[in-house]
């Protein structure tokens, strides 16, 4: 694959990437500007253990009823995000002019196909379920369409249209709900620390005074 970095579209992708990262950093700085809380109550558990659990066990079907009861949605979400990460990895390789080893191609294409189906499935769910439609904003549809197109084009037409979709996706990332790629980690860390301090996470942890 030729090095795309110095083509006009390649340069635009990089610029969009810089925009996305800078935008997310600004959002993080703004959130941090709200200030942090120094708790006074004596901890009953370990916040760090709570955070570790929040990113592992607490997300498993065993600990989460919403996962157990919505396994298809859970699967679609996993596939969608797997596809997005795969497409970004391919984008980075493509911009740098590296070929994906043939032995990995089949796996990557499978992940992209599953990712595209995941994105489409979640979009259909959002369109068809009245309650979810009521909960949705235009932002939800725009975000899904941009990411799904990016994944699908990586699979079927990894050329200029794909690079264009990458530019749009990266440009939009800090503007709409795709910002959750940052805030998921911030929010879940606070969540884990909160329940970790209180001795709720991880389950069975020792509760001390």
């Amino acid at each position: 694959m030729p090095n795309q970095l110095f083509t006009p579209l390649g340069t635009a992708v990089v610029a969009a990437g810089v925009w996305a990262v800078a935008g997310l950093l600004v959002l993080r700085a703004r959130a941090r500007a709200f200030g942090s809380r120094q708790p006074f109550a004596a901890a009953a558990g370990d916040p760090a253990a709570g955070i570790r659990y929040a990113f592992t066990g607490a997300m498993s079907p065993g600990a989460k009823e919403s996962v157990r009861e919505h396994l298809p949605s859970y699967g679609l979400g996993l596939a969608f995000h797997g596809g997005i990460f795969t497409a970004f990895a391919l984008l980075a390789l493509s911009l740098a002019g590296f070929e994906l080893p043939r032995s990995l191609w089949l796996g990557a294409r499978a992940l992209l196909a599953l990712g595209a189906m995941g994105g489409l499935g979640l979009l259909l769910k959002r369109l068809l379920k009245a309650e979810l439609r009521g909960l949705s904003r235009p932002d939800d549809f725009v975000s899904n369409l941009l990411a799904t197109a990016f994944v699908a084009l990586a699979l079927v037409s990894p050329g200029q249209a794909w690079l264009l979709s990458a530019i749009l996706l990266l440009f939009y990332a800090p503007l709409g709900k795709i910002r959750h790629c940052l805030f998921f980690f911030m929010a879940r860390s606070h969540f884990g620390a909160f329940f970790g301090r209180r001795g709720v996470f991880p389950p069975g942890g020792s509760h001390v005074h």
Partner: peptide
């Protein structure tokens, strides 16, 4: 605080 500002930015309106 930072925690709440993060939460308010984080919801993906999945309805789960």
């Amino acid at each position: 605080k930072e925690a709440e500002a993060s939460y308010l930015n984080a919801c993906v309106r999945c309805g789960l």
